[in-house]
Amino acid sequence: MVLELASNMGRVPEAPDLAESPLSIRGLTVTYGQKPAVFSVDMTVEPGKMTAIIGPNGAGKSTTLKAALGIVPHVSGQVQVFGKPIDTQRARIAYVPQRASVDWDFPTRVIDVVLMGVYRELGLLGRLRGRHKAKAMDCLNRVGMREFAERQIGQLSGGQQQRVFLARALAQDADLYLLDEPFAGVDAATEKAIISVLKSLRAEGKTVVVVHHDLATVTDYFENVFLINTRKVAEGPVTQAFTAETLQTAYGGRLATAQVDQLAQAVG
């Protein structure tokens, strides 16, 4: 165990051909206290594709994303975005956090939340101008929330809140979109709206990475998957990496065998 740990930690980033990957992670380890939540994970996101991060509860799906972005500290590991250190590429990354991570009674309107997406562009003293507001309205329109612009955010349903978060990410004009459980607890209409926006992003050549919990929709929504259970289990195109064996490894006893077979059939 100790040896394995040492060899994993000492691993040098390899594969220069992956340098242009929108998000490449090498040897990422995150611990909460002494217990590793994510252990020595490598991940290479393919450009222009939609990738799902999948795994059981507590497998480190969200943690991987948060640690890569520096939201939670990591013990070891390197992260590169478009082949460069992440801090030089922040403007190209749009992150959509989990809905439950904020207080929805915060005094702010829908349009104000979307405008947070242009704060970076504005800098500390730049004035909000008409074109920023027009852009924010356009982003709200894309997620079907235009008529809610003036509402206080507390008045929205869960699905509407999620769409507002997505609109804020759109306002950033990023190249890499990272979404943490965007489909958790949302209504069918919202799920449809979100997936169609994500597909349109892909059509524009953007890269989308989604922490996803619903195994049934993986093959419909995504081209690539990344299976994780503290360690990386599998990575690659859905047809190769999303199989009965990889799911069994990732979920262990937590997924009923019948469920796995059913999914495997769906995969084909």
């Binding site: 939201i71 956090p97 991570s101 947070m116 704060y119």
Partner: peptide
């Protein structure tokens, strides 16, 4: 304001 409302998003923005 960004940090007060959504610290995770703020952190992701650098």
């Amino acid at each position: 304001i960004l940090v007060a409302f959504d610290a995770e998003y703020a952190a992701a923005q650098g």
